[in-house]
């Protein structure tokens, strides 16, 4: 258990909290990369998934993109982009591109499923009231699909935080850098401190999005509590009754 006191000592050392390799700087890098990649992923995935869901087309693509995302190792994509010619190579572009690529699938799949699970009767009623396609999307489908949409964004955020950590093996900054530095220098307290920081950041991100999800769907609080924890419940449990 000596390593435990060593880790505490690492955290207590003020030099680990200063400068461009200190914990705050690494945290800012990690959060910055994550936020940028998540923003781009949302900007690409949300309009695409909402549009496909509204038209009811491209379902196979929307569902299978997640299966592809799971089968491709993030580490492999990071290395491939790093070895690729400009504008990739050893650059922030490569890392952000990899993060965006792995952020898109969960958003597309969840948003699409959310759109398709909107009660067809409700859609028919809205059409019967004379709503245009745009009004239907904005005022009926989008609000009803929001819980699953937010679930997709949460999954993407967690995936991006994890991938940004692995990016430290390749080139990137972020908290993963503390872990890889601990490995390469065989400095076990540093390694463990870095790992703890990464884990805490990931859990914090998960928590923030879990709260956002509840705010986005207040009337489902009871349902989510019953399904246990903040993890992804079965899609059909997400969109049973509203309106």
């Amino acid at each position: 258990m000596r390593w435990l006191t060593d880790v505490v000592a690492w955290f207590a050392d003020a030099s680990h909290w200063r400068g461009n390799q200190g914990v705050p700087a690494r945290l800012v890098e990690h959060v910055g990369l994550t936020a940028a990649a998540l923003g781009i992923a949302c900007a690409i995935a949300l309009p695409l998934a909402l549009w496909l869901g509204h038209l009811g087309r491209g379902g196979t693509l929307a569902i299978n993109i997640s299966n592809v995302g799971r089968a491709v190792p993030t580490f492999a994509v990071l290395v491939l982009l790093t070895l690729a010619p400009a504008p990739f190579g050893l650059s922030v572009t490569s890392i952000v591109t990899a993060l965006v690529l792995f952020g898109i699938p969960p958003i597309v799949t969840n948003t699409y499923v959310g759109m398709r699970e909107v009660d067809r009767g409700v859609v028919e009623a809205a059409r019967g009231m004379g709503m245009s396609g745009w009004q239907l999307l904005r005022r009926v489908e989008l609000p009803l699909a929001t819980p699953l949409l937010l679930n997709g964004v949460r999954l993407a955020a967690v995936q991006i935080v994890a991938t940004a950590t692995i990016a430290a093996l390749v080139a990137g900054g972020g908290l993963g850098r503390i872990v890889t530095s601990g490995f390469s220098r065989q400095d076990r307290p540093e390694l463990l401190a870095g790992a703890l920081l990464v884990a805490l950041l990931a859990l914090a991100v998960e928590l923030v999005f879990a709260v956002l999800q509840r705010l986005g769907a207040p009337d489902r609080r009871a349902r989510r509590a019953a399904s246990g924890a903040s993890g992804a419940p079965a899609p059909d449990a997400e969109l049973a009754t509203t309106l």
């Binding site: 390593w3 967690v158 935080v161 994890a162 950590t165 692995i166 430290a168 093996l169 993963g176 872990v179 601990g182 490995f183 076990r188 390694l191 463990l192 870095g194 790992a195 703890l196 990464v198 884990a199 990931a202 859990l203 991100v205 998960e206 509590a225 246990g228 924890a229 903040s230 993890g231």
Partner: peptide
């Protein structure tokens, strides 16, 4: 047991692999 167990599992699932492997090194 469902809520605490699935909650704990989800928390572990959230931890990035690089960090999880590192935490097991000791």
């Amino acid at each position: 047991l469902a809520a605490p167990l699935l909650g704990a599992a989800t928390a572990v699932y959230t931890i990035p692999s690089l960090a999880l492997f590192s935490l097991l090194v000791p």
